[in-house]
């Protein structure tokens, strides 16, 4: 399999900037169109203002089989609000109108992307920088990786606690943008984060590649973020933010809460 050259876009630029300042990346996940269509773009801006470095935007899907209860519910709410992948791209366009630097990565399930004609070019044109496909392991990813790469987008690879060493070695050869290390066996938002195990695994993975590695699943606050970030290039926080939005009555309240949550985690990361 050919190695795909790293794309010199916003993702690479942001990680380079963070490395230069000796800082860790705060990656945040929210589901597009949840809990209301008008929540999403203000939420993206306030996460950035609070200190997020990279935004993951979930593509709502009818069968989110790897998600825990918080993000499942978010998917259901977003679909009930009439969300589609086309509308997710519209939101990125709207976000880009006043933010041209923060990387945006879409995260979701393969069937959404397969259903859109010319997805890669449309996503690129909207201002999307990368894609995380939950149900697309290495063996199945080559075609989509090349399609994305052709337009300058990264397909972010995932590595799990159950990924054997030789397999991890193969995955890193095609890694672009960053690597997503799934911190635990479970669904998103699960509770049992074992920092020691993450540390041990990360020290191995870091010998394999210079691509930045971010750790996600089970990180919910400044404390868990700080503990994990000591061993990683960044952390991903998702379910906790999604839950916080679900509990907010309107977009302004949600934006304020996201701002302070992001700022709090940022503080934890910066020690």
């Amino acid at each position: 399999m050919d190695a795909v050259p790293a794309n010199q876009g916003r993702i690479a630029a942001e990680f380079a900037r963070l490395a230069q300042h000796g800082k860790k990346a705060l990656v945040t996940f929210i589901t597009a169109g949840d809990p209301g269509i008008d929540f999403t773009v203000p939420a993206m801006h306030s996460l950035v203002a609070g200190g997020a470095n990279l935004l993951e935007l979930g593509i709502p899907f009818s069968d989110p089989e790897a998600e825990g209860p918080a993000i499942q519910a978010a998917n259901e709410r977003a679909l009930a609000n009439g969300m589609t992948l086309a509308k997710v791209l519209d939101m990125v366009v709207e976000f880009r109108a006043s933010n041209s630097t923060t990387p945006v990565v879409l995260m979701g399930y393969l069937n959404s992307v397969l259903a859109m004609t010319n997805f890669a070019q449309r996503a690129k044109d909207a201002g999307v920088d990368g894609l995380i496909m939950v149900n697309l392991p290495q063996e199945e990813a080559a075609d989509l990786r090349h399609t994305l790469s052709a337009v300058g987008m990264d397909l972010v690879s995932l590595i799990a606690p159950t990924t054997a060493d030789p397999r991890a070695q193969e995955i890193v050869t095609t890694a672009s943008g960053f690597l997503y290390y799934v911190s635990l066996k479970g669904t998103t938002g699960s509770g049992a984060l074992a920092v020691d195990e993450v540390a041990e695994r990360m020290s191995f993975l870091q010998t394999l590649t210079d691509v930045p590695i971010c750790v996600g699943f089970g990180i919910k606050d400044a404390k868990s973020a700080a503990a994990v970030s000591a061993h990683a290039d960044g952390v991903v926080v998702g379910s906790a933010l999604v839950q916080l939005m679900a509990d907010s009555a309107d977009p302004n309240i949600a934006a304020e809460r996201l701002h302070s949550a992001a700022a709090d985690i940022r503080h934890g990361l910066d020690g």
Partner: peptide
């Protein structure tokens, strides 16, 4: 690799590939 022509395959979360 589990293909019947273009059908089949293994589209799952990375955590499950080992199992």
């Amino acid at each position: 690799s589990g293909y019947f022509g273009q059908f089949g395959g293994r589209f799952v979360a990375e955590t499950l590939t080992h199992a």
